[in-house]
Structures are given as C-alpha cells and as structure tokens.
Design a protein around this nucleic acid. Structure first.
Lengths: 256, 256
DNA sequence: CAGTGGTCTAGACCACCAC
DNA sequence: TGGTGGTCTAGACCACTGC
C-alpha cells in the first residue's frame, strides 16, 4: 500500500466521524465548538471548519448558526418504487408509508395546488401544445419535522379541470391516481429517471440542505393503457436520507 | 422574493458557471489560474479556491495539480437497467453499450478475477455459510480513458468453480449470465438498491474523484427461476456522469 | 526553474441565537 | 451580551507539473 500523507482537515474529519460512531458524540448531541476543537487539536479554526465541511457534505452533521453543530439522527428511508404505487392504490398516502415504517412521524405540506403552465421539459414529456396548462400539485414531505422531499406533480389540465377532488390536498381514496382512474385515465405503466446533483438555492432552503449536499432528482412518469403520459412527478430528495429500490423480471420486451 | 446577500465565493462560483455555459471557458479548456482570477475579481486566492471547490463538487471542472483547472466534457451516460441486461443476453458487454451510444470509446479493465471470501453483507445476500467463498469479478470501466464505474460482481464459488470461462475477462457469449444459464442457474429476476454517498479514498483514486463528489452505489442482485440469489454486483459510479432509468407495469404482485 | 493548485495560519468582522 | 458558526484576507510553505 502506498502511504499518502493526508491533510490535517481530512484526518480531523475522520477523527470526528470516529467519535460519532463510537458514541463520544451521540445522535442529536452537539459537537464541541470550533474554537474548542481548534484548541484541543492545536490547529486554526479554519482547519476545523473545513473538516466539518466534509461531515456536512456527507450528511453526518447539521449546523445551526448561532447554536452549534449537531449530529444527524434520521435513518435512511427505503423507497420501493413498485410497492409505493401499489400502496397508493389501497388508499394510503404513498410518501407517508415509507416514513411510518421507520416509526417516524410523517407530515405533508401542500405548497401549491392549481393551474399552471409547466416548464418546457414537462410539457414535452406530457406531449402538450405550447402554452397548454397543467394541474400542479406541489408538496413537501416531512419526517419528525425534518423535510425529506419535494414532490411536484404535473397533470394535463384538460383532463383534470373537471375533477374538484384533485384541487384538494387530500385527493380522496387512492390518491390522485384513484381520481385519474375514475376519469378513465388510470395509470398502468411507469418510468423513473434518477440523477444526482447539487441542490438549487431554493431547494437548500426548503430541504434544509447546504450547497455541498447532493440530492436525488427522480423524474417519475405515469402512462395509461393507451400509453399516453398522464403524469410527470419530480421528486427532489436529500441524498443521504434515501435508499431507492427497484425490481423487475426478464420478460419479452413489450415496451419501446 | 427575499434578497439574501450571498457570500463572495458563491457569487464567484455562479460567475464561473455562467462563463462555462456561455463558452468563455469551453469544454476541455483551462480556467485562468487562481492567482489571475483573484486579481481580476479583487479577492484573495482562498476565496477563489473555495468557489472552485463548489464547481468541483458538482463535477463541472476537474483539477490537475501542477497543471490547472479544466472544464469537464463528458456528457451524462444513460443507464437503462432492463435494457442493459437484455443487451447482455445478446452477447454484448452491457457496460460498453451505453458508452458507445454516446460515441465515446469504451474500455474495460479487469482488476481481479478469482476466488475470494466476500464481505459479510454480500455473503448474507447470497445466503452463503460463514466463510464460504465466491468468485469475484472486479472491473473498472472507462469512456475516452476517463473512469466511469467500478463493478464488483460476486458469484457463489460452489456454482462457478468448474466453469473456466468465468475466470477469464471475456466470459464468452452472453457474458457471465450466459455461463450461468448453461450451468442451469440463469437469472430471471433482478433487484437494484440505489444510494448516494461520498467516495472512499480508494474510490477517489480509482475513479479520479474528489472527496466532495458524490457517487451512486448500486447494489444489483440476480435471482434464478427457483428464486435463489445467484449474483451480487456492486456498482460505484460518479454521480455527475450518470442518469439511471427504470420502468415497470402495474401487475398482480407475484414477488414477496 | 517557474507556474499551478493544496493547505495552513492568525486575525478580523459579521450574522445569528439564546439569555 | 456572549457564544456560535460564516466568511474573508495576506502571507506562507508545500507538492506536483512541464520546460
């Protein structure tokens, strides 16, 4: 093995991570202040700050200005793509099932529900004409009051405009997919595109993240029996909070 | 809208990103040196360094010590989970198809092929007894000589030990799944678990990444008709290089 | 050798929080 | 008001590259 001399801030980050793991700094407890750590380790505060920057990027600690640096405590949430839509059909809010499984307290905040001209990429995916409107259902989901995801769901306005329940936070039994089914546009096929990126400033505020903490962006699409796109839902989720699960069987390929 | 006064290094990062997008700094070209940028923008070099740190985390630039800072040029590679295993069955190396689609030059480096006692998590997934061995096929894939992923494939040694092609880099027509099928253990069902995390130091070296650049970890599993786990493959891929694609249809749930 | 980025320091000022 | 982290500076030394 080649011995690489490591920079101090990397070594300090490792030290702090060790202390978190061995219980010296338990979950939800505060780390010593940067000044104190600097003194203890005989380095400048800037070096400590940089070390903590690594812990922040990986989601191990969260920092509150004026308060201090605290060890994160939320476990990873498992998101089973197939199961969640199956659950939805049984009438449960899909996003909350996963959270409840971990004995955490879920909570959904509907930020906006209404008619909206969608971003061009969404319009294209839904095969809408230029300027054609959609119903946007935008919500933020929480676990124990910590934000866990933003979900912006776009549905063609032409199809949803005469369905009042879709304008309510609680869309009724089976959620919005239940209503779509009643309208004769029940989704039967889904796709998801998953990417990782750094959060925008708005997302940093909403999800309580820092510029260096990656987020999943899941571009979820639902199709009807006629293979028409009926929904685009964009999920933005803190990377350190989630684990995504997919499964499939080898079968004659019936889709393009 | 609330006006948030931004720190200089965030503003400078935005400025540099703008210049990259508008072609002032084209792909593969070098940014001005930190000293020069510091002079141009009338800030200290540390501030420039911090701004560039943000561009590095998001994968917009890569830095070569002694050389300079260069604008990244590789596009995102699309990975269609279902399609790639279908392709494999037709005899093409799955990992290379995706790269070739982008007119890039693929290349696979087999780091290790041989008998190995696997990590405990892998052993458990394969339902092996404690200490039972596996065949490990470990490889690094490249596009245009830039590393794009590490793939470590584990197969039960008891099943694979008498199949010499599996000890070769090229496992023959249909890849290792082809050989498993001949052995009567062809995989028919798959699962994938996707997480994001920061890279280990070894991964940083292998994938030419920095500590702040997130990676996908895909835990891929293959099952036989009898529903026995026949392979665990762990993919580690730079987050900024990939886009993952999954699809499924609503159907009577036949799996646990 | 000169030029590049990597790292570190001491000191400073600020914004935010709890009391 | 005192303690916390956020940011910035000027200067320094180092390691690595290419000439």
């Amino acid at each position: 093995m080649i011995e690489t001399p490591k920079s101090q801030y990397v070594q300090i980050a490792e030290l702090l991570r060790t202390r978190i793991k061995d219980g010296t700094y338990p979950p939800s407890s505060a780390l010593p202040s940067e000044d104190r750590l600097a003194e203890e380790l005989s380095v400048s505060r800037v070096t400590i700050n940089r070390a903590i920057g690594l812990l922040r990027a990986s989601g191990d600690v969260r920092v509150r200005r004026g308060i201090g640096t605290v060890v994160r405590s939320l476990p990873r949430i498992h998101r089973d793509a197939q199961a969640r839509y199956a659950a939805r059909q049984e009438g449960t809010g899909a996003g909350e099932v996963e959270v409840r499984k971990l004995s955490l307290q879920p909570h959904t905040d509907y930020r906006q529900i209404g008619r909206v001209v969608p971003p061009e990429t969404v319009a294209k995916s839904l095969r809408l004409r230029k300027g054609e409107a959609t119903l946007l259902r935008s919500r933020v989901l929480y676990a124990n009051d910590e934000p866990t995801q933003i979900a912006d769901s776009y549905l063609p306005w032409s199809i949803t405009k005469d369905c009042p329940p879709l304008l309510q936070p609680d869309a009724g039994a089976g959620g919005s997919y239940g209503r779509l089914a009643e309208l004769g546009h029940g989704p039967v096929r889904f796709t998801e595109d998953v990417t990782v990126r750094m959060p925008t400033e708005a997302e940093q505020r909403t999800l309580d993240l820092e510029a260096t903490q990656p987020v999943f962006e899941i571009w979820h699409m639902a199709f009807t029996v006629e293979d028409l796109p009926i929904e685009v839902c964009i999920h933005v989720m803190p990377g350190h909070l989630w684990s995504l699960h997919y499964r499939w069987a080898d079968q004659p390929r019936s889709w393009p």
